[in-house]
């Protein structure tokens, strides 16, 4: 039984790794680099937390 679990673990790892690679490729080719890297630090902070004393 343990050997079966062992192989199942390898299988799941490979499957999920391939899925992530596929999704990565899909996202990187669908969206432009500017959109993907458009997150800025403190941007939400300025909106959601009013900084008054």
């Amino acid at each position: 039984m343990w050997m079966a679990i062992n192989y199942a673990c390898w299988g799941i790892s490979v499957l999920l790794a391939l899925w992530m690679l596929y999704d990565w490729f899909k996202i990187d080719t669908t969206y432009s680099e500017d959109v993907l890297t458009s997150s800025r630090e403190g941007e939400l902070e300025a909106v959601s937390e009013k900084h008054r004393i």
Binding site: C9, I12, L16, M20
Partner: peptide, 20 residues
């Protein structure tokens, strides 16, 4: 406690599943 069973597959599954 099975002879020949190594930890590699469990390590791989842990890291990959959690990354996913």
């Amino acid at each position: 406690g099975v002879e020949g069973l190594t930890h590699n597959s469990f390590i791989a599954a842990t890291i990959v599943v959690l990354a996913w």
